[in-house]
Write a protein that binds this DNA or RNA. Structure first.
Length: 114
DNA sequence: TGCGTGACTTGAC
DNA sequence: CGTCAAGCCACGC
């Protein structure tokens, strides 16, 4: 596991996010040991296969959003719309602008300093 | 070996 | 609440 590529760790960590909850890139980064690699997490998700499956497990990439609680704009492919729909489908309230209430849906309730 | 790139974060204005 | 700039990490060429 420690020898596995970063993106593999990211996928596995994301796969641990329970249904109906969301996690931020920074949070995922912290869990895999990258205290400042939120961008790397995004990079890893970008490399995620279309099947969204790793090691036979589905990777809920749609549960990963940025620290503002907004869906990242990956610039095309209509991905954000798809992600918003997927989140609502799990019972997560998503505003018209694609914003999610982190204080209510954030996984494990972990938050950074205020 | 070094530079550019990106689904990010945070602090300032 | 909106935009700007700087920082950080891993990967591909």
């Amino acid at each position: 596991m420690t020898d596995d590529p970063i993106f593999l760790k990211v996928w596995r960590t994301v796969a641990h996010v329970p249904r109906g909850r969301v996690a931020t890139y920074g949070q995922i980064a912290l869990m895999i040991g990258l205290h400042r690699g939120a961008r790397t997490v995004g990079w890893a998700l970008r490399a995620l296969p279309d099947d969204c499956r790793v090691d036979g497990k589905a990777v809920p990439w749609h549960r990963v959003i940025n620290a503002r609680g907004a869906i990242s704009d990956r610039g095309g492919g209509g991905g954000i719309g798809r992600q918003a729909v997927a989140l609502r489908r799990e019972g997560i309230a998503v505003s018209a602008g694609g914003l999610v209430d982190l204080g209510r849906y954030l996984w494990r309730g972990q938050r950074r300093r205020s």
